[in-house]
Amino acid sequence: MSMMIIDILSWLLIIAGSFSMIVGGVGVLRLPDVYTRMHAASITDTLGAGTIIAGLILQAGISLIAAKLLLILIFIFFTSPAASFALAHAALSSGVEPILDSDLRSDEEKEKSP
């Protein structure tokens, strides 16, 4: 019985992960500029990867495979913000202008920035 609950839970997690993956992919196509696309990519890196790997861990049970999957998840969670930061920083410093609805920085900064 408890096996079945774990099974159902893991399928639900994997389906939620697959759904958020596809939505993230759609977002990367739909959103207007680099910075907003990065938000869509970060969905697939956090919720998508997190739920799919959690579902796989539930399928694997307590074993070496589960530990390795956990290691992959931790690694993705540590590196994806670093990669996003490097990308956004490189894009802004090389003068890719973000499309902005409102800019809450001070005026002198707006003139200074590319």
């Binding site: 869509a40 409102s102 800019d103 809450l104 920085r105």
Partner: peptide, 22 residues
Amino acid sequence: ANIDVLKLILAPSLPVTPTLLR
């Protein structure tokens, strides 16, 4: 935050208001 962004992307009118702040 993920659920918020998912809703934004799926909304047909794409109601994003990108903002830079410190």
